[in-house]
Each structure stands twice: as structure tokens, then as C-alpha cells.
Nucleic acid binder design. Sequence first.
DNA 1: ACTTTACTGGACAGACCTGTCTGGCCCCGG
DNA 2: CCGGGGCCAGACAGGTCTGTCCAGTAAAGT
Lengths: 203, 203
Amino acid sequence: MTAAPQLERRRAGSARRRVLDTATRLFYAEGIRAVGIDRIIAEAGVAKATFYHHFPAKDDLVRTYVEEQSRLQRDHFARMPRAEPREALLTVFARIGEAGGDPHFRGCVFLNAAAEYPDAGHPVRRAVDDHRRWFHGLLAGLLEAGGDPDAARTADILVALRDGLVVGAHLDDPHRVRALIGDAVTRVLDGPRPTGRPGGAIP
Amino acid sequence: MTAAPQLERRRAGSARRRVLDTATRLFYAEGIRAVGIDRIIAEAGVAKATFYHHFPAKDDLVRTYVEEQSRLQRDHFARMPRAEPREALLTVFARIGEAGGDPHFRGCVFLNAAAEYPDAGHPVRRAVDDHRRWFHGLLAGLLEAGGDPDAARTADILVALRDGLVVGAHLDDPHRVRALIGDAVTRVLDGPRPTGRPGGAIP
DNA sequence: ACTTTACTGGACAGACCTGTCTGGCCCCGG
DNA sequence: CCGGGGCCAGACAGGTCTGTCCAGTAAAGT
């Protein structure tokens, strides 16, 4: 009980919290490379030494930012009310349309971050990969529970669809995307399966 | 006959050509902000003054890069052999799978560029928009020719699918994406339509 | 032979970047 | 009361960025 207060002090992490919040806002709105440390610490009202005390380098801040966004999304879906698999799937996709309506919407945190880190082995890219694997697993689980005969494949397609919808809501028209989400998901879920073709998977 | 040689000199545009080629390679491989002018002119073997003679600012080079890539893709599809609309559609999507197999593949030129330019009104973003409108029109035209009852809607979905597939081929597994393209497109094309529901569009 | 034009090589300015360091304040636990 | 750690303020170093400028070369057209 003597070590805990050190980690849980009243103001402990307050500066760190402000840095991370500011970085999250600026990184998402303007891009990661486009936002410098000086700008972050100025808007967060934090000394430079304090920043480098909490984050050894800028990339550590970026990685933390991406990881936290992933955690927030996972928490959000974990707190989603229980529903039938298919309904849950539609809810997941409906959220894309809602997010696109936000005036601050600027696409997917993870896709945007990945676009700025060409090196696939970079910690930031790994964090993105982790998030994508989680999301694929979430969809595959719902599909399996819903009795989809090839949940992994359908999940692959739905992940692609989700990425494309988010991109479209950002670069094209959010309202049009919102209007077509249900149609698109239904086509993927209920569209014809290749296994139905005679002479299919098994030779 | 007197003005033409000035524009078509033997070496005229040679330096410009080298700059644009080098920039194309580096921008795509490493990102736009990540590549500086000094690096481009060094690898292109061009003097700095020459660079700024052809491109008033870096953003002009970037815009030219994006526009040229758009033109190249349009030319490619224009030279595509005539085929039935549906077959042509499948060919368009099959190319995504092929591109993903290239070891230098690093996603979509236009999505990557857009991710680095948050301002939607920026000339680079406009060039990206132009390209996306063209691509949507290409798909919509093929769908209409193929007798799709709601070509614009289906084109919207296919554009989203295309974006997601390209993203997946870059961030996830190119081989898996390649294997599911046909399935995905078929589901979207032949999946159930909302208009088929009783009490549909017309109240 | 003269002019025009693209091009070279490199110095230079001014801004911005990340990251380090010093010095001191303030609050909380012991 | 006092020690330590979180925090602040800002100078500083070393590098990179974009963009300007100058002086000179080489080749094309007239």
C-alpha cells in the first residue's frame, strides 16, 4: 500500500494526460508528421522536459496515441449491449455512418497513421496491425455465431468494406455513405457464395 | 513549325522528367512529407535552380505527381481490350490483386496522398477527388451497360470495396485479398437489393 | 556569330524539427 | 521539517526543411 500512492497521485499523469489528449486531437486533425513537439507542448501547457520525461521520443507518443485509440474502440464495443449476431454486425457498421457525420471526422485513425509510416515493422504499424487483427476477429466471431458458413472469408470482405466505407465517408460524401451502409452489408452477408457452385472447394 | 521545336527539344524536359520520376518513386515508397527536395534533386541529378524552374514549389510537384498517376491509370483502362461489362468489371478488380503482389506495392497513391493533406480544398486533394470521381464514373458506366438497376448505388459500394481491398492488400495479406476479390465482387453485384423489399423506395 | 534557353553547382537565409540540459518551484509523504 | 519527485521555463545544439540567388556552361535556333 506504500507504492500505490506514488503511481496514483492526485496530479500524477496530469501533464501526461494533457499531452496525450492534445496530441490525439492534433495528430488526428492535421496528421502526425505535420504536428511538431513544440506545438504539442505549447497547446498542452507542458514543459518540454516534462514531455520527454513521459515519452522518450515522439514515436513513443505516436505509438501510445494509436494504442489508446485502439483500446477505446475495444472498450466501446465491449460495452455494446448484447444483441443477435446479425444485429450486432449492423450496429458495428452503422457506427461508421454516424462517425462520418461528425464535422471533425477525418477518416480512420489507424489508416491515417499507417499511411505515414511506410516501414511495416515500425512499432506504430504493429499497433495498427494489432487493432486490425482484433477487428477482424470481432467480425469473424459475430459471423460464426450467426452461422456464416465461411466466417473468416466473410470477415475479410467486411473488413475491406469497412475500410472503404470509412475512406469514402472522409474523401467523398458522408451522407451518401451513411445511406448505403445497410445495403452494402446486406449484399455481402446474403450475396451468393462461391461454395454453392458445383465442383467448389473440394476437388 | 517554329514554335514546336522549342517545346520538343531533344533534352527539353529531360531534367523535369527525371525529377518527376524520382519524386514518383520516393513519394510512393516513403511518403510525401518524408521526402525532401534536396533528396529528390540529388537522386535525380538535377540542380536546385532547375527544380524550382520547373516546379515553383514542392506542392506543385506533388500535385503533378498525383495528376500524372491519375492520367496513367486512365490511359491504362482506356487501352483495356473491349469486353462485356461484367467481365470488364472483374478485370478492373483483378488488377488490384495483381498490384498487391508487387513487392514495391505500398497501397493506393491517392489514398496515401490524401492522408498527408488534411485540407480538403488543397490542390492535391482536388486532384485526388478528380481521380475518384473518374473511377466512380468508370464503374457506374460499366454497371449501367451491364443492366444494373441501380448503377450509381452499386458503384458507390464497389468504390468502397475497391478502397478497402487496396488497403487490405497493403496492410494485411496481399495473397488473401487476391483470393477473395472475385467472391467479394460477386456478392456485391449479385447480392440482394433493397428495392426488392416490399414497400421499398416509393411510399 | 549572336541570342536565347535549359541547366549546373553551390552558397545562403530563415524557419522548423527533435532532443538535451540547467535551474528552480511546489507539493506531498515521511 | 525536509527530501524527492513531478512539473515549469527556456536556452541550446545539431540537423533538416523549403526556397532564393548568383555566376557560369553548353547547346539549340536565327
